[in-house]
Amino acid sequence: MDKPRPKQIFSAQVNGQWVELLIAPQETLLEVLRDHLELTGSKEGCGEGVCGACTVLVDNQPRRACLTLALEAQGLPVLTVEGLAQGGELSREQRSFIAHGAIQCGYCAPGMLMATRDLLSRQPTPGEEAIRRQISGHVCRCTGYAKIVEAVAALGQASPGEDRP
């Protein structure tokens, strides 16, 4: 006989709403978001932490949802790309990405947007170097990154190439 595999209760504040569900202890945060909560904005690119497409904010800090056990986020606020828009209106990061052509196939965008939200929360006017460094853990195969850097730089109103304090 197989050993019993008890499930555990997972409870967290996802995009402002408390959720509570029964999950297997080894389920990743990405699986819980996508498969249980049907929040399919966060993507699984590589599944091993390299591509950054699954990045969400847990307790305001970026985490690879594919390498984070859901239970590690127990009781904490989780923000996904679905939580960026407020009252039916896209967030300023999303608007800037669209305006600058920083979204092509869109697969990396959820992770890039969360990385952007994180950077701007710590450094409101990042220069090009800080932006490139922040997104260095995020792979995009369409844009060549230039449009993404422009979209983020526009949010800080700093011209690319200039690092403001």
Partner: peptide, 10 residues
């Protein structure tokens, strides 16, 4: 090691 969005919490 890794990249900034891995260095913070992970």
């Amino acid at each position: 090691i890794g990249a900034p969005t891995l260095q913070q919490r992970v």
